[in-house]
């Protein structure tokens, strides 16, 4: 089951928070392909938010290809596929890098430290994903 948390009062809209968390969950391997997502109504009632917000988040997730809808059954985590053109993907990566780097630099970290932190994190993610995959097999 998906464990989502939302925070009100932040400058990230609620639907964006859902999108981000689902995306992260899928990317990190916490939600393998085929995991069912709760219905819009159920998630709205679980999070106590407007169903339209959930619907909008799901629509974004479907558009991005993270999630697919199966008629009459609801939403499921989809096989990863390219939704964006290469150019767009690069732009988005660039934007993510920029905000990450500006934050890291302002905290006083410099090149080597940042690089090693990123690599450590990546390694951990891969190992987690690997165990999940093994289990599924």
């Amino acid at each position: 089951m998906l464990e989502l948390r939302i925070v009100t009062g932040s400058n990230v809209p609620l639907y964006q928070q859902i999108v981000d968390q689902v995306r992260w969950g899928v990317a990190s391997g916490a939600h393998p392909v085929g995991t069912p997502l709760p219905s819009v109504r159920a998630l709205a009632e679980q999070l106590v938010i407007n169903p339209n917000t959930v619907a909008r988040a799901y629509a974004d997730l479907v558009r991005e290809g993270v999630v697919e809808t199966r008629a009459g059954k609801g939403c499921f985590v989809a096989e990863p596929r390219k939704v964006y053109a290469d150019e767009e993907r690069e732009r988005r990566l660039d934007a993510a890098l920029e905000s990450f780097l500006s934050e890291a630099l302002s905290l006083g970290y410099r090149g080597a430290a940042i690089r090693s932190a990123v690599e450590q994190r990546l390694a951990r993610l891969e190992s987690q994903g690997g165990t999940r995959k093994r289990e599924r097999r």
Binding site: T8, A44, L47, V48, I49, N50, P51
Partner: peptide, 29 residues
């Protein structure tokens, strides 16, 4: 939760005034 319960039925409309922005953010369209 009660407000959301109301909107579960098709065509039910809710108008509410509030000072609590967190609530508005959660439930208002």
């Amino acid at each position: 939760e009660a407000l959301l319960y109301v909107t579960r039925r098709e065509g039910r409309t809710v108008l509410f005034s509030s000072h609590v922005l967190a609530d508005v953010e959660r439930v208002a369209d």
